[in-house]
């Protein structure tokens, strides 16, 4: 075993100062060390996107990121969006459009969509589809996910 190293990682605005093994994955840090189990593990090799979080404002695969790489970073997870009693507009749109079935890919999908909505106009559905093409959903066939993101994008674009 290798010596533990100190890190300071800010997650959803809360600072976490910990001593961790250098090999610890960011997703395991989130799920096991600070009990934020909303971020899911789907493939552990960066393909499915279920573990997507935002790191310093950019989407990142938390299964391919070591927690030590997040030292000093600001991490946003699905838990930052809205609560059971107060879903944010994107979460509400997902519910209204039935954009989730089993819900397992949903946190990653929401974080990717959050990133897209902040950065891109998403003028066409093809742009949305391209944007979420790194997130696999096995249940919905994507149609309703696209519709949900479309609704929020249109609202943000003032339509």
């Amino acid at each position: 075993m290798v010596d533990k190293v100190p890190v300071t990682i800010t997650v959803n605005g809360a600072r976490h100062v910990r001593e961790i093994e250098p090999r610890l994955l960011l997703v395991d840090f989130l799920r096991e060390d600070i009990d934020l189990t909303g971020t899911h593990v789907g493939c552990e090799h960066g393909v499915c996107g279920a573990c997507t979080v935002l790191m310093d404002g950019d989407s990142a695969r938390s299964c391919l990121t070591l927690a030590v790489q997040a030292d000093g970073a600001e991490v946003e997870t699905v838990e930052s969006l809205g609560s059971v009693d107060s879903l944010n507009d994107l979460q509400q749109a997902f519910r209204a459009h039935h954009a989730l079935q089993c819900g397992y890919c949903t946190p990653g999908m929401l974080m990717t969509a959050t990133d897209l909505l902040r950065k891109y106009p998403l003028a066409t559905d093809d742009e949305i589809r391209d944007g979420i093409s790194g997130n696999i959903c096995r249940c919905t066939g994507y149609q309703n996910i696209v519709a949900a993101i479309r609704e929020v994008a249109d609202r943000r674009n003032g339509q």
């Binding site: 934020l36 189990t37 838990e79 969006l81 997902f94 519910r95 929401l110």
Partner: peptide, 9 residues
């Protein structure tokens, strides 16, 4: 079931 799944809980 949606609210808990959407909120990551």
């Amino acid at each position: 079931e949606d609210p808990r799944l959407l909120a990551g809980v």
